[in-house]
Amino acid sequence: MRNLLKLFLKYYAVFLFLLLEFLAFLMLFQQNHYHNAVFLNSASGVVGFINTRAAHVVDYFTLKKENDLLQQENLYLRQKLEEKTAASAEYESTYVDAKVINNSVVRQKNFITINRGEIHGMKKQMGVLSPTGVIGVVENTSPHFASIIPIININFHLSAQLAKNSFYGALGWDGQDPQFAQLHEIPNYVDVQKGDTIVTSGFSYSFDEGKLIGTVHSAEKSSASAFWTIQVKLATNFRNINHVYVIDRAKIEEQKSLEVKHD
């Protein structure tokens, strides 16, 4: 027993090292599987506060760009208004505007934090749009902040379709270039041309059908599989997103509860 204790004292640093690494990897794997279990993330209060301060500093350097974006945004809103008055109110969604307070594009698991949280009605799985296209889905919420898993996160998956013929597939990101995502599972007998528009399919809980994701940059047929390999040029430039819209789909809870009954 005494020898065991001696051994332990001699090599305590190794044991401590192994223990701490074990904890670190535990957190790492938990984040991948159950996002809820993460207690420290950018949606938590203190971190959110400091990120807000940092965002304020950066704001000054991007005023010019911000103006241009606001202009685009006006345009978007005007179009939206027209659509709204024209279309039937059959499946109504409301939009909540939010400001990005933390954003990353250079990692494989990128995240975005916004300054809207539970008290503004943020819930998990809500879709997030920029003035130019789809951004991602709400992943975690706190009272005042929410973190978003964007398209450019290797864990992100979304059902997407070709606007012209409604063939749908799975959109994902390979962790390489934040300008491009990949669309899988489109059968190779479907006509796909460079420049074709890719939109959301309406099979997800997060987005209405027809939200712009991007355009086909290149499409390759491989002899080994029956599917296209499609590179999608994303409509959103993830490097300079500042203002986003979160979609609050009014009737989605009803749809969900109905569908759960089938399981």
Binding site: A13, V14, F17, L20, E21, L23, A24, F25, L26, M27, L28, F29, Q30, Q31, V38, L40, N41, S42, S44, V47, I50, N51, N102, S104, R107, K109, F111, T113, S147
Partner: peptide, 20 residues
């Protein structure tokens, strides 16, 4: 650092590694 980067455990594992 992980809390700020949303990378639970990743930077922790690497920095503990070099501290060791």
């Amino acid at each position: 650092i992980d809390a700020f980067m949303n990378t639970a455990g990743m930077n922790t594992a690497a920095i503990v590694f070099i501290a060791f």
